[in-house]
C-alpha cells in the first residue's frame, strides 16, 4: 500500500543559513534533495513519513571547484553535472565514470551526490570512487562546520557519523596525481538503469609497470563500502604482471563479507569481486602499455 503524502509539509529555505536554522529547530524534519531515494522510500513506508526540508533549490550548494590538490563538490550537484564536469573528468575520472552509471538520464538529472552519500546504500555507485580518492565530507550546522573522512562517516549499515541538525554541504576529493590511473566498475543485472550487484573502483599510482600506490574499494559486498587493503598490499611495490594481478584480485576476498539477496548470492558476489578487480587491473595495465 502506498503511503499518501497529502499531510506532509515541505519547507523551502531561502538560503543555507535558513536551512540550518530549520534543521536545528524542527526535530524529525527530513532533508529532501533530488528525492530519488527519499520520495520512493517514504511512499513505500520504508522511511517514516515526516515533514520535509526541500534544499534542492539551494544553488549555492551546486558546484565543482578545483582548489589546489582538492576537488570540492557541492552536495546538491547532480550526477549529470558531475558526469559532464571538465574538472571531474580530468582530475577524478573514476568518479565521472561512476556518475554515468547512476540509474537513467532521468535519475542522473535529479539524483545528487549528497543524497547518494547520506542515503548510504552499500551499493551506491559514487562511493567506491570517493573511497579511493580519500574523500572528506563537510557537515554544517548552526554550531559550526566539521569535516569527516569517508571511512569514518560510515559506522555500519546505514549508520552515519552525522547528527539530525547537520547538513552535508560538500564532498572533497584528492585530485588524481600524475602517474595515477583508475577505473570504476559495476555489475548490474542489465546494462542500463540497474542497481549494482557489485561495484568498485581501482586507482593505481604507477611508474612504468611498478605499482607505487594502490587503492581498491568495493561496494555491495559488506554493510558499508570497503577498502580492499589486502589486495592493495599485494600490489604495492610490485610489478603489474598477470600473476601479481591474480594474487591481488583473490586477496579482495579477505576484505568482503557479501550476503545473499534479491540481486545475487554471496557466492556470486565473491566471484564477481575477484573477476572485476582482475579485469580492471588488466585494463589499466593494457592502457598504460605494460601488458
Amino acid at each position: 500500500m502506498e503511503v499518501l503524502l497529502h499531510d506532509v509539509d515541505v519547507l523551502v529555505p531561502r538560503d543555507l543559513d535558513e536551512a540550518l536554522r530549520v534543521l536545528a529547530e524542527r526535530r524529525g524534519i527530513k532533508v529532501l534533495a533530488g528525492g530519488t531515494d527519499l520520495l520512493v522510500q517514504m511512499r513505500s513506508g520504508a522511511v517514516q513519513k515526516s515533514d520535509l526540508l526541500d534544499v534542492s533549490g539551494l544553488w549555492e550548494l551546486k558546484y565543482v571547484r578545483h582548489e589546489d590538490e582538492t576537488i570540492a563538490i557541492g552536495a546538491l550537484t547532480t550526477f549529470s553535472e558531475i558526469a559532464s564536469s571538465e574538472v571531474i573528468r580530468r582530475h577524478a575520472p573514476v568518479l565521472a565514470e561512476a556518475a554515468e552509471t547512476v540509474g537513467s538520464v532521468q535519475i542522473m538529472n535529479k539524483g545528487t551526490i549528497g543524497g547518494n552519500v547520506v542515503n548510504a546504500s552499500p551499493a551506491a555507485d559514487s562511493l567506491p570512487a570517493l573511497y579511493v580518492h580519500d574523500a572528506e565530507l563537510k557537515l554544517a550546522s548552526l554550531k559550526g562546520t566539521r569535516t569527516v573522512g569517508i571511512t569514518e562517516f560510515y559506522r555500519g549499515y546505514k549508520r552515519l557519523d552525522m547528527r539530525p541538525d547537520e547538513l552535508l554541504v560538500e564532498v572533497r576529493l584528492r585530485a588524481e596525481k600524475g602517474g595515477e590511473v583508475g577505473h570504476f566498475f559495476k555489475h548490474g543485472l542489465r546494462q542500463g538503469d540497474a542497481i549494482s550487484v557489485v561495484n568498485g573502483a581501482v586507482l593505481l599510482d604507477l611508474e612504468g609497470d611498478l605499482v607505487r600506490g594502490a587503492a581498491i574499494a568495493l561496494g555491495a559486498v559488506a554493510p558499508t563500502v570497503v577498502r580492499a587493503h589486502e589486495a592493495e598490499r599485494a600490489l604495492k611495490g610490485r610489478r603489474l604482471r598477470e600473476d601479481v594481478m591474480w594474487e591481488a584480485a583473490r586477496a579482495v576476498l579477505r576484505s568482503i563479507s557479501p550476503i545473499d539477496d534479491v540481486r545475487g548470492s554471496a557466492a556470486y558476489r565473491r566471484e564477481l569481486s575477484v573477476n572485476y578487480v582482475f579485469m580492471t587491473l588488466w585494463r589499466i595495465a593494457r592502457e598504460v602499455g605494460v601488458l
Partner: peptide, 23 residues
C-alpha cells in the same frame, strides 16, 4: 522511477514527474 513513463522536461531536462515534489 523505474519505468520512465512519466518523463517530463523541467527547464529542458528529462526527469521523472513521479519523483518531483511540487516544491
Amino acid at each position: 522511477g523505474d519505468c520512465g513513463e512519466c518523463t517530463v522536461l523541467i527547464d529542458g531536462e528529462p526527469v521523472h514527474a513521479c519523483l518531483t515534489a511540487m516544491t
